[in-house]
Design a protein around this nucleic acid. Sequence first.
DNA 1: CCGACTTTGTGCGTGTGTTCACAAGGGCTT
DNA 2: AAGCCCTTGTGAACACACGCACAAAGTCGG
Lengths: 216, 216
Amino acid sequence: MARLPVYLRALHVLAERGVATVSSEELAAAAGVNSAKLRKDLSHLGSYGTRGVGYEVEYLVYQISRELGLTQDWAVAIVGIGNLGRALSGYGGFASRGFRMAALLDAEPGIVGELISGLTVEHIDDLEMVIKDNGISIAVLAVPAAAAQAVCDRVVASGVTSILNFAPVVLSVPDGVDVRKVDLSIELQILAFHEQRKAGGPSGVEQEYLEAVEGP
Amino acid sequence: MARLPVYLRALHVLAERGVATVSSEELAAAAGVNSAKLRKDLSHLGSYGTRGVGYEVEYLVYQISRELGLTQDWAVAIVGIGNLGRALSGYGGFASRGFRMAALLDAEPGIVGELISGLTVEHIDDLEMVIKDNGISIAVLAVPAAAAQAVCDRVVASGVTSILNFAPVVLSVPDGVDVRKVDLSIELQILAFHEQRKAGGPSGVEQEYLEAVEGP
DNA sequence: CCGACTTTGTGCGTGTGTTCACAAGGGCTT
DNA sequence: AAGCCCTTGTGAACACACGCACAAAGTCGG
């Protein structure tokens, strides 16, 4: 389930505060979900709480981490070291959860060789070699839209089976390869949609198109 | 619907290629969804295609843009000009869709005054003034987790009703304020989860916790 | 002008996710 | 040791979204 990471983060906060046990009600509030949903999620992964008491924070952290595969070390490559790629390479939230930035790649000669977050940027021509040598199974694509599919094909051919795509295109990949897409512009558009709804919605302006196209 | 921006992007690509009309089947393939779903989405917003022909690309672009509120100009503020804030301020996908970066804010004296993407970074002490003077209704939060709720409260108090939150915390806001959360670490965790599933899943390691805690 | 073909719009069955509500179960107090 | 109270785990109703499949509708060729 996609909510497990949210629970996990809330649990980490509680653990830092020294909380030993937590009820489903409290944890659900911290995670921003319904308590029944949380209990069902946790029971679904077979983890047990104690009736009358709640869940032991440390135990639950371990169970969820294991379920998510965070008890192992994942080597991640970032392809495309523009502004976004740089931001991602320095993002602390990755390393603290078992993700190790293992390689940075770019096509721009002015960027290749640069030292960023302790890693030297390598040339994308060496992509296949870099991926195989470092045992990379997850790639982050922060490249321009026009290059995304080509880069995607190459990382898949090199053995990568999970891709986090920031380019605004729909990638096509073979079966067995997972793609998650983060589109920053889409998020803003969804906000604008709700914002407009608050302001009364688009009703009453149905004729705008004709006016814009044909003149009033 | 959250899929409209995806359709819109696909339509823009088609428009650039000079395509005049498109069938639901073609557009659905470009957007990566089922064609029946696409038709239902489009009919839901009252837009009409032509049976036997398809949808007129230009007309559909306008209809969806209007539905999403992209025909108006949205002023956006970015709070927190770290690596991520810089990447966002320079992201071209915003300006091309009716979003205008109107203000950049940060608390760090070394950053305030800096010129980034044509804007001077302002001090967060002036947040209320900046938001009101620029008519900002959407704020992007790229601040550290510890500061996020406080900043959120301030932008809401200043009249912002839509927030795009990159900080890894669950923000609490009054009714009428929309929050969308982008958590880069969560996306990777979800990928790791599927990656682990492919490799055989967490079965067989149930005893690891006891061993890790109590010794073998 | 007519018929065949294409594509939209939608009714319906199906499956999934969400929520309520409650019984089962365990701890804590007396 | 016994009963009370709290919390989990889950059964069942509900709501929603998805996709198939088809009828309505409009176009194009003859």
